[in-house]
Design a protein around this nucleic acid. Structure first.
Length: 407
DNA sequence: AGGTTAAGCGCG
DNA sequence: AAAGCGCGCTTAACCT
């Protein structure tokens, strides 16, 4: 088994070097403009928070914020940090925002501040003056699961979830006469869960090419697929993601804002409908305990010494890792194989295209206009056929003038 | 002054 | 927050 990984990891070294050298073209001007706008907005928010709080303080200071919220304003302490201090984390402030004005304003400030300090301020400074591009470093031997990591700058956490965040992504552009092509594996970890668990119901869902969250919702909540409400689909999506991470009723309840009993009921129903998945979860824990490690489809191992720990919290954490690592790790193996195959094709085909980024389940290319169609077709084919599992892999390809448009 | 940790949050 | 997995970066707080 080990040699399977060597066949992937060793050629990948040169692919990664090439991707790093290619670099991503980023418009420093666009980002700098956004920094100015964000600065003005943050200034307004700061003043408004100060007036709500009845005092001036440093919004970036956790300590001062704790004093203002919990001592001066007397808001209830819902959770504490591991260090025993009252927490001001996002999830806590979202809770508090239902009953008070201040937490919401703090959250807006925090969100925008993060975008400015990490992205719009910093990325322009990291543009290489010769290439006009940002050249990240990809690390092949950092993560526990076999994923790559990216640093200086990290291009695997560029914003996308908010409108302001997407504006940052819009600064990742294609050169003159070129396009950005982004190719994403669709639901790859869930598909791998279907492969590993051999659950008939889940395999069939992917075979039929249907919306898997909708299918889960219809199974768990006992409706027809067409009759699934938006809320039920959202719950099913949370269940599906939660399963990949080894989440239990407590966490699902928190995620969905329902009681623990209701969450437990959802999980019970799920395992009833997808018995193969239930077995797989149990087997993962057992295998980890017996062998001391778990492995991906291609034999990448993760040793879990704490799987037999007396300390329940640590043991349970190891159990969650035992469940998650084979899925996350197999997905990582798959995209690495795809990257090697895609680069081999790029090199011999002479299309005017470069692989410029990898973001866990996504590959990003910069492609000359005339070659966009050919590259899109070929990359989709190579990614979907990188490996042969019991479940189909599906890749979605998007094209645009910038990274945001390509999604 | 400079390094490390804690808290928080961006992404898959 | 985490009884939800994997990362890296920023600021403040803490320490030598």
């Amino acid at each position: 088994m080990q040699n399977v990984l060597e066949e992937v990891e060793i050629p990948l070294i040169s692919v990664l070097a090439l991707v790093e050298r290619n670099g991503a073209l980023v418009s420093g001007e666009m980002l700098t403009r956004q920094s100015v706008e964000l600065g003005e907005r943050l200034e307004e928010l700061r003043t408004s928070v100060w007036s709500m709080a009845g005092q001036e303080f440093n919004l970036d200071s956790t300590k001062q914020l704790q004093e203002v919220l919990y001592e001066k304003q007397g808001l209830p302490i819902l959770k504490k940090t591991p260090g025993g201090k009252p927490s001001t984390a996002e999830a806590v402030l979202v809770d508090l925002a239902r009953d008070y004005d201040l937490p919401g304003a703090i959250l807006e400030y925090r969100g925008l501040s993060k975008l400015k300090s990490t992205y719009t301020d910093k990325l322009p400074l990291q543009i290489n003056s010769e290439s006009g591009r940002v050249h990240t470093s990809y690390h092949q031997a950092v993560t526990a699961t076999g994923r790559l990591s990216s640093s200086n700058p990290n291009l695997q956490n560029i914003p996308i979830k908010t409108d302001q965040g997407r504006r940052i992504r819009q600064a990742f552009i294609a050169g003159k006469g070129k396009k950005i092509v982004a190719a994403d594996y669709s639901q790859i970890e869930l598909r791998i869960m279907a492969h590993l668990s051999k659950d008939e119901q889940l395999l069939r869902a992917f075979d039929e090419g249907i919306d898997v969250h909708r299918a889960t919702a219809s199974e768990v909540f006992g409706t027809t697929p067409e009759g699934v409400s938006e809320a039920d689909r959202r719950s099913a999506k949370a269940i599906n993601f939660g399963l990949i991470y080894g989440m239990q009723a407590f966490g699902l309840a928190r995620q969905l804002g329902v009681s623990r009993a209701v969450a437990q009921n959802y999980i019970d129903l799920y395992f009833e409908r997808y018995p193969g998945v239930a077995n797989y979860m149990n087997d993962s824990r057992l295998v980890a305990k017996e062998k001391g490690y778990v492995e991906t489809v291609y034999g990448r191992r993760l040793y879990l010494p704490e799987i037999s720990a007396k300390h329940a919290q640590r043991r349970q954490a190891a159990e969650r890792t035992a469940i998650n690592a084979p899925m996350q790790g197999t997905a990582a193996d798959v995209i690495k194989i795809a990257m090697s195959n895609v680069q081999a094709w790029l090199t011999k085909s002479k299309v005017d295209a470069k692989m410029v980024m990898q973001v866990h389940d996504e590959l990003v290319f910069e492609v000359a206009d005339p070659d966009v169609e050919q590259l899109s077709i070929e990359v989709k084919k190579l990614m979907e056929s990188a490996v042969n599992l019991d479940v189909l892999l599906e890749v979605e390809v998007g094209v645009g003038n910038n990274w945001d448009e390509a999604h």
